[in-house]
Amino acid sequence: MNPINYLYLSALLFTIGGAGVLFRRNAIIVFMCVELMLNACNLAFVTFARLHGNLDGQIFAFFTMVVAAAEVVVGLAIIVTFFRSRHSASVDDASLMKL
């Protein structure tokens, strides 16, 4: 199979993730969509590694996974704290900084 198709898939996944971040209100789903975008990037990295025949892309994919794991820890903690104080997981309720 032509590896270029993986790139199309990656772009599709990234778009889905981006749309989810922009249009959904539930913080958990927004968060999941962010993860989806990261994984779309991972897919692109791996595909490029395969295309170029070196391991740079795969190494970057591992870095991304580690950063994503850390981000999940911090992000989920923020969401939980937010839910506790606001009794809501909607990102629209996080508007304290607005005038």
Partner: peptide, 17 residues
């Protein structure tokens, strides 16, 4: 310009995008 600062994270994300 203040209208832009609507407090919705999503709209900030759109401008970032």
């Amino acid at each position: 310009l203040r209208q832009v600062q609507n407090g919705y994270v999503r709209s900030y994300a759109v401008s970032m995008l």
